[in-house]
Nucleic acid binder design. Structure first.
Length: 567
RNA sequence: AGGGUGUUAGGCAAGUGGUUAAGCCGCCAGUCUUUCAAGCUGGUAAUCGCGGGUUCAAAUCCCGUACACCCUACCA
């Protein structure tokens, strides 16, 4: 292949460009675009960044992670964080995915400053002066840039078919040379003006490729704030910039959008590292100043029998929706992610238990370079802390919101008397011990539901321990029924229980029982168990005295009677 | 195959030449105790992927190697 690349005159280039973009006169000029999207006036050091997901299905937890890091960084520097929808691949587009992205970000408190977001009526609208923020609506901007590059010969039309490309790749593999469209393998570079003109006029489909200027034996470097200086070979591949349907590829959209949206920092998943040479080359081809690139390791693995990639198809925890479904409060997920980003966050949190997480300053340089495994157990621990720290009103609110979707039965009961539920949820929370009874909202069932008669097991299925005889059990409950008053302080309950124990031949103190077990029927703990099961339907409960106080006189009497009725 | 990124206890992770390699989660034990949690106290566990080298001294620097993942699409 000793052919020579075709050299075009500027007139030929102009003619071709106009042929390719027949509407060229309607396209904005680069100068116009520059005016339409002026440099942002922001404080020195302000970071403008974005998250740019594709609407291809569920929202990935990694996407939320990247969004969190970007947003924090922008906020910390009085910059701008925007959302752009990368929908250039219509084949993979999924109906509803766009809404999922906007809603997920909103749910997690990560709504952008610009881009698609909810208005006060809850409708999705686009805000911001640098839009549109959905790529398929930006066609004329891409075309304007492509037109400019065409005129300069920086890109060229390529008519190679899928079959030709496949065949060429096979040949390259056989020859053990690098695969791809580059140098002499880039057939489009050798087409004459006439050939191109007639093919276009004949309606043969084509793409627009970059005329790559890189050399394979040269390298290019940039400073990645997480990884330091990265040095990689220059790009030599004539990458497709505009697809045959006129829509740009990711790379071209990135160039155009992040330039005119005035993005200063690209903070994205590390799968993009290998594309940086191309991207730098693109900016250079336009004579534009490139943004800073830094790459975060995606959360993508999980432990089981080994390590493997966190798969969209097989690992439900890859989806953002999984966490709320499984009762993790949003804030727990955010703080877990934040801790993954900067592990010193948890030290900060310990010192500042009540501060908003946004007061913590995140730092790119302190982010890990390795891809972390999703650690649900750690998440659960964080969730437990957060749930225990929440003011009771907030806890009720999040509990009800969760139950409303995932435990309708319970939500119905809760709604009947919110204050009652709050008092039930609040048991032991303000004590010295700082009880943490809820790890996730799924624990609402064992912790809250027993306060409602509706959820108690049938009387004959109450799990009474068999070390206390039925007659003693009934006697205990009769006395509780008689003596319990919800106006007494909760500590009083246990004092009463000791007296009841003594009256019925049980030891009032466990120690006494242990000393002389033969002298007693059992001890106050056994007596408490009977009451617990009768009142809570379970052998485990929060502080009994407080439980009874919340239940109230009438319910205590009812539940005693109910339990007494069985043999 | 070529290019790239990574590899510190069960998991997350500090640490960038110099005392016994932080901390959190988990796990185990003790303690508290009317149950279960929580709390408190203590414990467990890493020859820093492996092999060389540089150095008085290396998890930290250099070389090699293994493994994992990413890219090499008209997907992002």
């Amino acid at each position: 292949m000793d052919k020579k690349e075709t050299q075009f005159t500027s007139t030929e280039l102009q003619t071709l460009a106009e042929l390719i973009f027949p509407n060229w006169q309607k396209l904005p000029s680069l100068e116009e675009l520059d005016k339409r999207y002026p440099k942002r006036e922001l404080p020195f050091g302000a970071i403008v960044n974005r998250v740019a997901p594709s609407p291809t299905g569920m929202m990935h937890i990694g996407g939320l992670y990247v969004a969190l890091v970007n947003r924090r960084l922008a906020k910390q520097t009085q910059g701008v964080f925007f959302l752009r929808i990368e929908d250039t691949d219509q084949e993979r587009a999924v109906v509803g995915a766009y809404e999922t992205i906007v809603n997920s970000l909103a749910d997690y408190g990560l709504s952008p400053d610009e881009g698609p977001m909810h208005n006060s009526d809850g409708e999705i609208v686009e805000e911001g002066n640098y839009g549109p923020y959905v790529q398929t609506s930006r066609k004329e901007i891409y075309h304007a840039c492509a037109f400019d590059m065409l005129k300069r010969g920086a890109i060229y039309p390529c008519f190679m078919t899928k079959e030709e490309l496949d065949k060429q790749r096979e040949e390259q593999q056989k020859l053990e040379v690098r695969t791809g469209v580059y140098k002499e393998w880039a057939l489009g570079r050798y087409l004459s003006f006439q050939e191109i003109e007639s093919k276009i006029k004949a309606g043969i489909p084509y793409v627009l490729r970059l005329r790559a200027l890189g050399e394979i034996d040269k390298t290019i470097s940039w400073e990645d704030e997480i990884r330091g200086t990265l040095t990689v070979p220059e790009n030599i591949v004539d990458t497709v910039l505009i697809k045959s349907d006129g829509i740009p590829t990711y790379h071209f959209a990135h160039l155009v959008d992040d330039h005119f949206m005035r993005t200063t920092h690209i903070i994205r998943a590390d799968e993009w590292i290998s594309s940086v040479p191309l991207h730098l080359q693109l900016f250079s081809a336009m004579g534009w100043e490139p943004p800073f690139y830094t790459h975060v390791s995606a959360i993508q693995k999980m432990a089981e029998t080994g390590k493997r990639k966190l798969s969209k198809r097989h690992d439900p925890e890859a989806s953002v929706s999984y966490y709320w479904e499984n009762g993790f409060p949003r804030q727990a997920v955010i703080e877990y992610l934040l801790n993954l980003a900067n592990s010193e966050f948890e030290d900060w949190r310990r010192v500042n238990p009540t501060s908003d997480y946004t007061e913590f300053r995140i730092s790119l340089g302190k982010m890990g370079q390795a891809g972390p495994l999703a650690d649900l157990i750690k998440l659960e621990s964080i969730s437990r802390d957060i749930l225990s720290r929440m003011p009771i009103e907030a806890l009720y609110k999040v509990s009800y919101a969760w139950a409303f979707t995932y435990d309708k039965e319970l939500a119905e009961e809760m709604a009947k008397d919110p204050l009652y539920s709050q008092r039930a949820l609040d048991i032991e929370r303000d004590s010295e011990k700082g009880a943490k009874r809820l790890s996730t909202l799924k624990d609402l069932r064992p912790q809250l539901a027993p306060f409602f008669d509706h959820f108690l097991p049938p009387a004959n299925e109450l799990p009474f321990p068999d070390n206390v005889k039925a007659e003693d059990r009934k006697a205990i409950l009769e006395l509780v029924k008689e003596r319990f008053k919800d106006s007494d302080p909760p500590e009083q309950f246990f004092e009463n229980l000791k007296l009841i124990s003594a009256e019925l031949g049980f030891a009032g103190a466990v120690k006494d029982f242990k000393k002389n077990p033969q002298m007693y029927k059992g001890h106050v703990g056994d007596v408490a168990s009977i009451v617990r099961v009768a009142m809570f339907g379970s052998t485990r409960s929060p502080d009994l005295g407080q439980v009874l106080k919340v239940l109230g006189n009438q319910t205590v009497v009812n539940r005693c009677n109910r339990a007494i009725s069985v043999n």
